[in-house]
């Protein structure tokens, strides 16, 4: 009896092992490999990138279905194609800067340092330069400005701001100080972009003593671009393969 004991126990215990092995095999698992933190992070990044792509694709689908809807309306005769094209034209003109715009935003009045007895070494530091205006406008654009003008000269994609001695030239027109920069956008953000400590506007005002007075305006009017602009060199690229 004692001699059969070990074998029996071994058989029983191996049977238990076999039971577990069989039930595990039944699960049909894929091979589990150890995962490192790095691979988890990469997988996470991939996942979030894919999610963003998905959202963008959904937006695209929405946009395309809207277009399809418009085209269907044209086909059934409910909408006039001319109306649609006209609204398109309006939108494009607005984007290009050929439309007078209004909205909330800020107005900045900039003037040269008017103090007579200041301890700035060079008189150059007392006056406003094209670079100052450029930097302020760039800050405004970063802050999400949708339309900008200087002294009623609209800034569009090809507008230049260049030094012309005591004046600056914008859109081939000469402008003199004081400069009034208007920008439509989120007033708080725009205000922060020129007024917060450490910004270019703050440096101009506190270090160089140049006058820079931003005001929040609820209803700004920004004029349209008045010049004539034609493409001489650039041509639209053929779309396709």
């Amino acid at each position: 009896m004692k001699k059969s004991n070990p074998k029996l126990i071994i058989i029983i215990s191996s049977a238990i092992i076999g039971l577990f092995i069989a039930s595990q095999m039944k699960l049909n698992l894929e091979l589990i490999t150890p995962v490192t933190v790095k691979s988890i992070i990469t997988a996470k990044n991939e996942l979030s990138a894919a999610k963003i792509e998905l959202i963008e694709l959904e937006k695209l689908v929405e946009q395309k279905s809207e277009e399809l809807y418009a085209l269907q309306n044209i086909a059934t005769g409910e909408d006039n194609i001319i109306d649609i094209i006209e609204s398109d034209l309006k939108m494009n003109k607005m984007k290009a800067g050929y439309t007078k715009l209004e909205g909330p935003g800020i107005e900045i009045i900039m003037f040269d340092n008017l103090l007579l007895n200041n301890n700035v070494i060079s008189y150059n530091d007392d006056i406003i330069h094209d670079v100052d205006i450029l930097n302020i406008i760039n800050d405004l654009k970063v802050a999400g400005a949708e339309a900008i003008c200087i002294n009623e000269e609209r800034i569009i994609s090809i507008s230049e701001i260049k030094c012309g001695g005591p004046i600056i030239r914008v859109n081939d027109r000469s402008l003199g100080a004081p400069f009034t920069i208007k920008a439509i956008g989120d007033p708080k953000v725009l205000m922060a972009a020129v007024n917060a400590p450490g910004t270019y506007g703050d440096t101009l005002r506190t270090i160089y003593g140049i006058g820079l007075e931003p005001y929040i305006v609820d209803k700004l009017v920004i004029p349209s671009y008045k010049g004539i602009f034609t493409f001489n060199f650039a041509k639209p690229m053929e779309e396709g393969e």
């Binding site: 058989i11 039930s23 039944k26």
Partner: peptide, 26 residues
């Protein structure tokens, strides 16, 4: 005996309908 035992256990395991949660496989 061990082999026989494992075989018996495996046969029983395949015949029985019970499985456990995949989380416990490791």
């Amino acid at each position: 005996y061990a082999l026989i035992g494992i075989l018996i256990g495996a046969i029983i395991g395949f015949l029985l309908p019970y499985t456990y949660n995949t989380a416990y496989t490791l």
